Computed example of a mutant assay.
Amino acid sequence: KQSRHLFKSITFDNGKEFAGWREIANKHDIQTYFAEVGAPNQRGLNENTNGILRRDGLSKKKDFRNLPDELVTQLMSYRNNIPRKSLHYRTPIEVFMENITDAQLVSF
C-alpha cells in the first residue's frame, strides 16, 4: 500500500461517479473528503483543471469511459509539462519527481 505515501487525501465532489469512494479509500489506505454541495471553491485546482480540459476539447457531454488511452496519455503529458506560477514556474512533473522516492515510483 505505497500509494498512501504519495497522496495524503482525495476530496471528491458529490457526483454519482464517486459512489464507490469507500472502496478507493480502503484500497489505497487514503483519507477521503467530500466538498460541500454548491461549493466548487473547495476543489479549486480540480475546477481549474476541468476548465482547461474542456478548452482542450473534452466537453461536459463527453463520456470519459470511452476515451482512447493514447488521448488520455497525450493530454496528461501536455498538462503535466506546463510551468505553473504556483509551482514557482516549474512543471507539475518536475515537482512530483522531486518528491517521490524510487521505491514509490516502482509501486506507482
Rank of each mutant, 00 (worst) to 15 (best):
L67Y: 12
N41S: 07
L105Q: 15
R65V: 09
K27G: 09
E36S: 07
L71E: 02
E70I: 09
G51R: 02
R84A: 06
I93T: 07
L53V: 06
E36V: 13
F18N: 15
F18V: 05
L6P: 01
K62F: 12
V95R: 01
V95I: 14
L75N: 00
S77E: 11
N48L: 04
R79M: 02
D56Y: 09
N99E: 12
N46T: 00
F12S: 01
R90M: 15
H28Q: 04
S86K: 14
F7T: 07
I30M: 04
A25H: 05
F108A: 13
N48C: 02
L87E: 10
F34M: 08
F108D: 03
I30W: 00
H28L: 02
L6V: 10
L67C: 07
G44W: 10
V106Q: 03
K1G: 15
K62L: 14
G51N: 05
K85L: 15
L45R: 13
K61Q: 11
T11E: 05
R90Q: 15
L67W: 08
P68S: 12
K60F: 08
I52K: 06
L58Y: 02
L53A: 00
T32I: 12
F18C: 12
H5K: 12
I30C: 07
L87M: 11
D69C: 00
E98R: 10
L75A: 03
W21A: 01
R4D: 04
S86A: 12
I10L: 14
G38W: 04
G57V: 06
L53D: 01
T49S: 08
